Computed example of a mutant assay.
Amino acid sequence: MNGRPVKLAARGLWKLFGAGAADLERLGPAPDDAKLASAGIVAGVADATLDIHEGEIFVIMGLSGSGKSTLVRCLSRLVEPTRGKVLLDGRDLLQASKAELIELRRHKMGMVFQNFALLPHLSVLGNVAFPLDVQGVPRGERERRAREMIELVGLGGRERELPHRLSGGQQQRVGIARSLAVGPELWFLDEPFSALDPLIRREMQNEFLRLQNVLKKTIVFITHDFDEAIRLADRIAIMRGGRIIQTGTPEELVLHPADSYVAEFTREAPRAKILSARGIMRPLQDRVAVAGAVDARAKVHAIAAKVEASERPFLVEEEGRPVGLVDRAAIMEVLLGRETAA
């Protein structure tokens, strides 16, 4: 991904449940669902392989029971995988001792879950400073860092409030500030906004993007909502039955769904906000009069008005180099919801 190093990776990762789960080896290297079922085994995660790059927002999504939360818990080793590798900066976490894992979680990983899990007897400041207290950070330093995080998430002035006096969105901001207080390199978020009403959820998505623009964390984010996924994600992995069906950018998933399951996820997606000029362009032609140029990365909704208003096509440029043409017909195909060829 644009030359960024891989921060977190999974290689052939499995998490199986059932009486015969520990005896996976006898089923072969990659047993299919029928073989697992015949052995009385349920796959929470089945043969997952992925790379997550530094500074990337990597979204894992699927329907309820698809395995997305189990996968994230395996990646953080909150759940022990049955087989495979989890590599953090190239180091296999499955070889780490319990003490090493505790240190990794305290200093390198942040976690936010759907349940805010705030300590009711502690103030906002106390909740945010709590993980630093567990680390043994002196009081002055931990309160200074906690105040910085509280300001960062927009709760300055509420430091002394108890959780029950805060709205749901404010409580989730406290949870986010608490997870950021330790300065994690890797940030796991498991459906953190799904319990919020739609307006607050949208507000929190905006806040999340603002924070990422400042902090540049490596983020693994779980959701079942494709609209949320496309707003937030650099790339998306779609799961079904414990398996990763397809991984790609939102545009790649819309243009090239791997199967009908992925196509159904993307069917109602706002294509004008997902597809780029590059995604809908046609090949360059000699001696074609053009009306101007658009950036290859520009989304359709941003260029629709000027392209649709012109009888001439526009050049699509990438780093100043023409790579294709986009015209009124291509724009209208997207706006009217017809299939668009890449």
Rank of each mutant, 00 (worst) to 15 (best):
R142L: 08
R142S: 06
R142A: 04
E143N: 04
E143S: 00
E143A: 00
R144P: 01
R144L: 14
R145P: 07
R145L: 11
A146V: 07
R147V: 06
E148F: 02
E148L: 12
M149E: 13
M149S: 14
I150A: 09
I150K: 08
E151P: 02
E151Y: 08
E151D: 14
L152W: 06
L152V: 05
L155V: 02
G156H: 05
G156C: 03
G157L: 11
G157A: 14
E159H: 01
E159D: 02
E159K: 02
R160M: 09
E161Q: 10
E161F: 11
L162Y: 15
L162V: 08
L162S: 10
L162Q: 10
P163Y: 02
P163M: 13
P163G: 15
H164P: 06
R165Y: 13
R165M: 14
L166S: 05
S167T: 10
S167V: 13
G168D: 12
G168T: 01
G169W: 05
G169Q: 00
Q170W: 01
Q170D: 01
Q170A: 12
Q171G: 05
Q171F: 03
R173I: 07
R173G: 12
R173Y: 06
V174E: 03
V174L: 03
G175S: 09
R178K: 06
R178H: 03
S179G: 11
A181Y: 03
A181W: 07
V182Y: 01
G183I: 08
G183V: 00
G183E: 14
P184N: 00
P184M: 00
P184I: 04
E185L: 04
E185T: 04
E185M: 00
L186P: 06
F188G: 07
L189P: 05
L189K: 05
L189A: 15
D190P: 07
D190L: 03
D190A: 01
E191G: 13
E191M: 13
E191F: 03
P192C: 09
P192W: 08
S194Q: 10
A195R: 02
A195H: 10
A195F: 04
L196M: 05
L196S: 11
L196P: 09
L196Y: 03
D197A: 09
D197S: 13
D197M: 11
P198C: 03
L199E: 00
L199C: 01
L199Q: 15
I200F: 00
I200M: 11
I200C: 08
R202Y: 01
R202N: 03
M204V: 05
M204D: 06
Q205S: 12
Q205E: 15
N206Q: 15
E207Y: 02
E207H: 05
E207A: 03
E207V: 02
F208Y: 12
L209F: 04
L209P: 03
R210N: 10
R210Q: 06
R210Y: 10
